Simulated assay, not measured.
Amino acid sequence: MDIGIGLPGHAPWTEGTALVEWARRAEARGFSTLSVSDRLAWTTPEPLITLAAAAGATSRIRLLTSVLLAPLRANHALFAKAVTTLDQLAGPGRLHLGLAPGLREDDFQISEVDYGTRGRRLDRLLDRLASVMSGNDLVGPRPATPGGPALLFGGTSRATLRRIASRGTGWIAGDATVQDVRDFAPQLRQAWKEAGRTGSPRIIASVMYALGPNAEAAVADAIGPYYAFAGDEYAQYGISLAYTRPEQITDAIAAFEEVGCDELIFMGNDPDPAQVDLLAGAVGL
């Protein structure tokens, strides 16, 4: 199972250069993937711009949006151009797009994008993206990756299963538990088989972490406000799921690997780039 790391974009970071340093250290320590999350009504950095900076600071590590709120990108041609440009900057095979319809209504309200049609908007975006990636479109440049970046989808709906089986390479489970993967993976593999796909869908889980003497405070400061919209009980639940000790990290790796995950991504909650090295030490990189 691959071990990736996620930028602390939802945490109280103040300097973008720190996020670039995260990228440099993540590659140097041998993590498989660098991921970035997406929110509009929050201080989370824009994913494609952030990964463009990471692409320029690295040369090997995979770059993943986990997950990008695709329906907010209402100009589908412009979005496709941004993707192909980033794919060119990163080089063949490095960029992987994790996409989802989005859950929070406030992200759509401040965008003036209709929340109720977000699923249909995502499907139309995927149609245009496929057209651009195939070269049968006026939008350029062509992607560096033949056929375009790999597509993965978040969520557990029937529409998510359809998108993965028809267009994707796999599934991303955000803020995941082992039970989440255990429950959804059989449905995913069945949908994949029924669609006549060969091989197996890639399964990626992401979890929250912070390490060091201030780990619990960092998790509370980052996750508590981020999930406050859903009430204190949910926020406290999110905090309780985060991994704050090396032995928890080790146990999580074993448990997620046992249920068939192909990659486990640890999302940072403390903006200090030293967190990359602490995690690398905990996982043996």
Rank of each mutant, 00 (worst) to 15 (best):
M1S: 08
D2V: 08
I3F: 10
G9H: 02
L19M: 10
A23V: 01
A26N: 00
A26D: 04
E27S: 07
A28H: 08
G30S: 11
F31E: 03
F31G: 00
S35R: 13
L40M: 07
L40T: 11
W42G: 08
P47R: 04
L48C: 09
L48Q: 12
L51M: 07
L51S: 11
G56H: 02
G56P: 02
G56L: 01
L68G: 12
N75G: 03
F79E: 04
K81D: 12
K81A: 15
A82W: 11
L89K: 07
P92A: 09
R94K: 02
L95T: 12
H96P: 01
H96T: 14
L97K: 05
G98D: 04
A100T: 13
E105M: 09
E105N: 04
D107F: 04
Q109L: 11
E112M: 15
D114E: 13
D114M: 06
G116D: 08
T117R: 12
T117C: 05
R118H: 08
G119H: 06
R120M: 06
L122Q: 14
R128M: 06
R128T: 14
L129Y: 01
S134T: 00
V139A: 04
V139S: 05
P149I: 00
L152E: 04
G155F: 05
A159W: 11
A159D: 12
L161M: 05
L161R: 04
I164N: 01
A165W: 04
S166D: 15
W171R: 07
I172N: 15
D175V: 11
D180F: 06
D180T: 14
V181H: 08
R182A: 15
A185F: 02
P186R: 06
Q187M: 13
Q187L: 15
L188T: 05
R189W: 03
E194Y: 12
G196Y: 01
R197A: 11
R197K: 00
A205K: 09
A205N: 09
Y209D: 01
A210Q: 01
G212D: 01
P213T: 11
N214G: 13
A215G: 09
V219M: 04
V219R: 01
I223Y: 06
I223A: 01
I223C: 07
P225C: 06
P225S: 08
A230N: 08
G231Y: 06
D232H: 09
E233K: 12
Y234M: 15
A235L: 07
Y237T: 13
S240D: 08
Y243M: 14
T250Q: 15
D251S: 14
A252P: 08
A252L: 12
A255D: 15
V259Y: 09
G260E: 02
G260M: 07
C261G: 10
I265M: 11
M267R: 13
N269I: 07
P271R: 00
D272N: 06
A274I: 11
D277R: 07
V283R: 10
V283G: 05
G284Y: 02
